[in-house]
């Protein structure tokens, strides 16, 4: 079960941020923000490798005392970040991957919405509940 999920735009500004516990949001924002450094670095090294990697999943970015941060980057450089409680041993890499894939498809849906202006922060309530469901694994 993830405790926080974030969607970050091309310019590294947050487009969407949700935490299970709203009080911790700011704290998580700091963590997710610092994990972006690693995402950037991984992306740069990807470029260095020459071939554009098909793998969108970046794996674990950071392992903090209490949390693990996972990253996922779409081909359009939209970053998805999931923060997972590190005490949670149930979640395996595969689950994280599928979680990202679900988020990606949700994101694709919201971008297809004609009322959503690409680049704007996502404020759809429906989207938030969907993402929360993905995070809590109730989907």
């Amino acid at each position: 079960m993830a405790v926080c999920a974030a969607i970050i735009g091309k310019d590294n500004s947050p487009k969407f941020f949700v935490t299970i516990n709203p009080d911790e949001e700011l704290q998580f924002q700091y963590r997710v923000l610092s994990s972006l450094d690693i995402v950037e670095d991984k992306l740069n090294s990807g470029v260095k490798g020459g071939a554009d990697t098909k793998e969108l999943y970046l794996g674990m970015l950071l392992s903090l005392e209490a949390h693990k941060i996972y990253g996922y980057v779409t081909n359009t450089k939209i970053k998805f970040i999931i923060v997972v409680d590190s005490t949670n041993m149930v979640l395996r890499d595969n689950e994280i991957r599928s979680m990202f894939r679900k988020i990606h498809s949700e994101y694709a849906d919201i971008v297809s919405n004609p009322f959503y202006i690409p680049g704007e922060p996502i404020s759809s309530k429906n989207f938030t509940t969907n993402i929360k469901n993905i995070m809590t694994g109730t989907v």
């Binding site: 947050p14 949001e25 924002q29 700091y30 923000l33």
Partner: peptide, 8 residues
Amino acid sequence: ADQGWPAL
């Protein structure tokens, strides 16, 4: 620029 994380 309008960039960055507003909350932070």
